[in-house]
């Protein structure tokens, strides 16, 4: 660190950005791995069904399996497009 760096605005270091991004993506991919095998196929089929009625993005259907005690909860999130267009 040179003498002039002391006066610069501190900004977020690139390593901490990297760490945050990794923590998010790794957690998501681990969740996908630990879910049942049929999840990706089911997600695709649901997407097709929804598209019969509404045009939605490829990532509009998000699925998650959570464990609560002995219970498995399938969480399904569908993002519909904005109406304004």
């Amino acid at each position: 660190m040179g003498i002039f760096d002391y006066f610069r605005q501190p900004r977020q270091k690139s390593a901490s950005v990297a760490k945050e991004r990794l923590q998010i993506i790794v957690a998501r991919e681990r969740a996908a791995r630990s879910g049942p095998d049929y999840l990706p196929a089911m997600q695709q089929e649901l997407l097709q069904v929804i598209r019969k009625y509404v045009q939605v993005d490829d990532d509009a259907v998000q699925m998650n399996v959570d464990r609560e005690g002995d219970c498995e909860v399938l969480e399904l999130n569908i993002t519909l497009p904005d109406d304004k267009e």
Binding site: M1, K13, S14, A15, S16, A18, K19, L22, Q23, V26
Partner: peptide, 16 residues
């Protein structure tokens, strides 16, 4: 580079 915050540290990778 890790100390300067430009590279993931050993602890960062270990934690992930």
């Amino acid at each position: 580079r890790a100390e300067r915050g430009e590279m993931l540290s050993i602890e960062d990778v270990g934690e992930i």
